[in-house]
Amino acid sequence: MCAGEKKLSSITIVAIVIPIAVSVVLLFIGCCFFCRRARKKYNTLPEENGGVEITNVESLQFDLDIIEAATNKFSEDNKIGEGGFGAVYKGTLPNGQYIAVKRLLVRSGQGAVEFKNEVVLVAKLQHRNLVRLLGFCLGGEEKILVYEYVPNKSLDYFLFEPSKQGELDWSKRYKIKEGIARGILYLHEDSRLRIIHRDIKASNVLLDDNMNPKISDFGMARIFVVDQTQANTNRIVGTFGYMSPEYAMHGRYSVKSDVFSFGVLVLEIISGKKNTHFYQSELAEDLLSYAWKQWRNGTPLELLDTTLRNSYSRNEVIRCIHIGLLCVQENPANRPTMATIALMLNSYSVMLPLPQQPAFLHRSRAKLNKPITELESDQHTSQSNGWSVNEASFTELYPR
């Protein structure tokens, strides 16, 4: 074989080998990419509420052994509350950090859905007036959420326990109202997502060392897209006495549903009485109608908690009653937004419109205790305009 033929043969071999080598390298890189993508997808919780995705979800996951050790295997001594979807325990991590562990009911038909909902939502929310999600645990049948520990229990413990009411003077109550308003405003307008909580109530507001409020329990929350203002559902979840009439009766919810709940909560903070207290007494009125009656009679201070009689700001109390009544008006369009409410609470230069008659929520004890067993899924629509042991955390009805 001559030198020319050898040179040609070498070039031919090189021409064949190099493309093959490049192809193998590209194939290897492609396999690595797809394996990594598949592994990431496998380790990510299923997407909910319009395809919102959690990234690095594995960094939020706790081993079940660690959770069991932290709570002394879910000891009754560590139990600090219970809601509609499970019990809450205080725990201590190996580094000494306190945590609150929400252990969902094993046989709860909604447990998995509510679990994923809270993980998807709360992991993305960072605000000083929201309880911070530290992580979650999936082990066997266990579905567990791990939150920051908030030491002073829930707002209802201080508002409605006679021995504790005196610890909330007027300045603390006003500060708590402001903090709750900021937290809801963040959910509605300032976070990356527009979130409707759907269960704003005293037992879902926790208090830290300095009595700063932190909104908790996002198991019933829903995400709205940017231009969405309202949605419909066949499954009514929430708590009697806090649900807006359009939601309780027709399954329509919006940011104004949370505003209504906030208004009820404001009136409870002022009066020191549950809205449901009126349902369970011989009085014919609920808290809203009682507050309206006193307002119309020119005696709004009759609503004030008697433990506050010696230390309060008359103008602030009357203004807060005024704001509360604006929030619970029957027509959602007449209720202010949370942005306006925050301004109303922080500035006396903001003029308040006259409130109209609120939505009176008379309900018989039979309706309050009516058992509901069937559930249906939410049906979202888009419109371009516009941990307390003795309280059930959700109630289900079917809209008319």
Rank of each mutant, 00 (worst) to 15 (best):
C2S: 13
C2D: 13
C2A: 06
K7C: 05
S9Y: 11
T12L: 07
V17T: 06
I20F: 13
A21T: 12
S23C: 08
F28D: 10
G30R: 09
C31T: 07
F33P: 03
F34L: 12
F34S: 10
R37L: 15
R39S: 07
K40I: 10
G50N: 14
E58G: 04
F62Q: 03
I67M: 09
A69S: 13
S75F: 09
S75K: 07
D77Q: 06
K79W: 14
I80S: 05
G84A: 12
F85S: 03
G96F: 03
R103C: 08
L104V: 00
L105M: 08
V106F: 10
F115C: 11
F115G: 10
V119Q: 00
A123K: 01
N129T: 03
L130S: 02
R132F: 00
L133P: 08
L134H: 12
L138T: 10
L138H: 06
G140F: 09
E142S: 11
V146Q: 13
E148T: 05
V150A: 11
L155K: 15
L168N: 00
D169C: 13
S171F: 09
R173C: 04
I176E: 00
I180R: 06
I184V: 14
L185S: 06
L187T: 13
L187H: 15
S191E: 02
I196T: 10
H197N: 12
H197F: 07
H197K: 04
R198G: 15
I200L: 07
K201I: 00
N204M: 12
V205W: 02
L207T: 09
I215M: 11
S216L: 01
V226N: 11
D227T: 04
D227F: 05
D227M: 04
Q228K: 01
T233P: 07
T239M: 07
G241V: 08
Y242C: 14
Y242V: 14
S244C: 10
H250Q: 13
S254K: 01
V259A: 07
G263W: 04
L265S: 05
V266L: 15
I269S: 12
K273W: 03
N275L: 09
Y279L: 15
Q280P: 01
Q280R: 07
A284D: 12
D286L: 08
L288A: 08
S289R: 12
Y290V: 07
N297P: 04
L303N: 04
L304H: 10
L308H: 01
N315I: 05
E316I: 02
I318S: 07
I321M: 03
H322Y: 13
I323F: 05
V328L: 09
N331M: 13
A333S: 14
P336K: 02
A339L: 06
L345P: 00
V350R: 00
L354C: 14
P355I: 11
L361K: 00
A366R: 11
A366T: 12
K367W: 05
N369D: 06
K370T: 08
I372F: 11
T373C: 08
E374H: 04
L375P: 01
L375D: 03
Q383S: 06
S384E: 06
N385K: 05
G386F: 12
S388C: 09
S388Y: 11
E391W: 05
S393G: 15
F394P: 03
E396H: 13
L397H: 05
P399C: 08
